[in-house]
Design a protein around this nucleic acid. Structure first.
Lengths: 212, 212
DNA sequence: TAGATTGTTAATCGATTAACAATC
DNA sequence: TAGATTGTTAATCGATTAACAATC
């Protein structure tokens, strides 16, 4: 079990998939699942699933399997989905606006309080009911509103500067969409979304298959 | 070397990062780099970098290192960035529009020809100069325009149906943003962007650090 | 040539899979 | 109880790192 030993990142990144499939089962009214059945659904081996879950505790029952509702709820806790995190978006371009509207936020317990931009043309506009504010007011806003998360959707050139601002203002983590490795203090939590790398990977496999 | 043996996906996913840093060096006018220097920049070990590159050929020179321009260009070829791929976006919501406007496309050699939606309110509108068309016309459009790539930015519920349509129309690959495991023929190339899983992972580390 | 750095083999490490005793 | 399936240890596999001969 060893609840306190670091769980490997490869395990962590499988948890959301378990959580998603358990949610589906819950919606279907299924309340019991075995590692073998989960294996068929997720494509991971039953052995790996049992290993993964046992990093966090023994959620199953010999001879029975796992209770869907229980396991779903436990994974939700482990993933921190019960806590509400307060976020702001730096960069109110297309991506920033899409992110601000992103429905998946609620499921993960995130709440976008504001967008920030330096372009006077968009400052003052609202995305749904989220206001776009002047980036110069961002530090104060973050401090006054206890913002936990900064989201970087700016172009590459301004990403580091925005991250610095976030850090100065005291955020706990950064969700970064800019194609750059942000320079941050060691203990800062950064999660990157690498759209360009994903696209390059797609391109690699296309070339491999079709343009030998 | 073994240019024909399958290169592991973990290696492939590091290539874009090499490519990016080499591009930076190129812009700075630096024309020589050692695996050790690349290691400092990327955070991968020098040994790993040499191993990775040698999956595709011996690009370096003993005692010298790598020629930046040469290596950059070789990686570009390996990643298929020289080929122009024609893409369409299914789902003209915020994310679809953001994707259609995404500058990174050009770098990866992708061109978005059209967006498709079923909502009559958006059909006919243009994002920059890319028209939003009725999703019912998508198959014909793909066939007539030799579209290579379908991009799924729809909500989860319609994602599988759109993927099926893409496949029927004959695309070579799918870039999927919907939080679902698409059911596709074995040889179909699918690259997923899992925004929700990324967010869950961020949430996990926040909880781990702050809400023990 | 001497120094530097690759390409590549060998050693290590970590992650996945297999196996099975424990137990519901 | 008998059957099923977990939790967990052991075996295997693959990926990373170390080492060094080759060579520019």
């Amino acid at each position: 079990m060893d609840r306190d030993n670091k769980v490997s990142i490869t395990v962590i990144r499988r948890l959301p998939k378990y959580y998603r499939y358990l949610g589906d089962l819950l919606n279907k009214g299924i309340n019991r699942i075995s590692s073998q059945e989960l294996s068929k659904m997720t494509g991971f081996t039953a052995s790996q699933i049992r290993q993964d879950l046992n990093n966090f505790g023994g959620f199953g029952q010999q001879g029975y399997g796992y209770n869907v509702e229980e396991l779903h709820s436990q994974l939700g806790k482990i993933l921190g989905l019960e806590t509400i995190y307060r976020a702001v978006v730096a960069g109110a371009g297309n991506l920033g606006q899409a992110i601000a509207n992103y429905k998946g936020f609620e499921d993960a317990g995130f709440k976008v309080l504001s967008l920030f931009d330096k372009n006077p043309k968009v400052i003052g506009l609202k995305i749904r009911d989220i206001e776009i504010r002047d980036v110069d007011t961002m530090v104060d806003f973050i401090k006054e509103n206890n913002v936990d998360i900064g989201i970087v959707t700016s172009p590459r050139d301004s990403a580091q500067e925005l991250a610095d601002t976030f850090i100065k203002a005291g955020v706990k983590g950064i969700w970064n969409f800019a194609p750059i490795d942000l320079n941050v203090p060691e203990d800062m939590i950064v999660e990157n979304v690498r759209l360009n790398e994903s696209l390059f990977t797609l391109s690699y496999f296309l070339r491999e298959k079709y343009n030998k």
